[in-house]
Simulated scan of single mutants.
Amino acid sequence: MNQMVERFSEWLEAQKGKKLFIKKGEHSTGMENISDLDTISISLESISLRQSKQSSLDDYLPHQELILHGNGEIHGNEKDSPLPNQSFEIPLDETFRFSTEGNAVNVHTEKAVYHLSPH
Rank of each mutant, 00 (worst) to 15 (best):
S52Y: 13
S41L: 04
H119M: 08
S55N: 05
T29H: 01
K16C: 09
E26N: 06
I34W: 00
E73W: 11
G102F: 05
Q64D: 12
E32G: 09
A14T: 12
E94Q: 11
S41W: 11
S46D: 15
H108R: 05
L49C: 08
E73I: 11
H63R: 11
S56N: 09
S87W: 01
V5Q: 15
F96K: 09
Y114E: 05
I67H: 00
E32T: 15
E6W: 08
D80T: 14
L68R: 00
A104W: 04
I67E: 06
K16Q: 10
H108C: 06
N77H: 09
G25C: 00
I90S: 03
F88L: 14
E65T: 12
L116N: 07
S41I: 09
K23V: 13
S43A: 12
P82L: 08
N71T: 11
I34T: 10
E89S: 15
A14E: 15
V113C: 03
D36P: 00
T29D: 02
P91N: 10
S87K: 08
E110H: 13
A112F: 05
N33D: 12
F96Y: 12
Y114M: 04
M31T: 12
H27S: 02
K24H: 03
I67Y: 03
I47T: 11
P91Y: 09
H75M: 13
K111M: 06
D38E: 06
K16W: 00
G30T: 01
P91F: 06
L68P: 02
Q86H: 11
I74A: 07
L83M: 06
S117E: 15
S35T: 07
Y114V: 05
F8L: 04
N71I: 10
M4Q: 15
K24A: 14
L37H: 00
L116T: 06
K16D: 02
L83K: 01
D38F: 01
S35Q: 12
E101T: 08
S41N: 14
Q51K: 13
K53M: 12
G30F: 07
E13Q: 14
L61Q: 14
E13G: 05
W11Q: 05
L92C: 14
H108E: 14
H69M: 04
V105H: 02
E45I: 07
M4I: 05
V5L: 09
I47N: 02
F21W: 12
H27F: 03
D93T: 07
S52T: 11
L83G: 04
N33G: 05
T100R: 15
E78R: 11
L12W: 01
I22V: 14
L116S: 03
H69I: 04
G30P: 01
S56M: 07
G70S: 05
P82V: 10
K24T: 10
L20R: 00
E65L: 11
G76N: 03
E110I: 07
E45S: 14
R97F: 06
P91D: 13
L37K: 07
D59T: 02
H119L: 08
K53E: 15
D59A: 12
D58R: 03
H108I: 09
G25H: 02
S56Y: 03
Y114R: 04
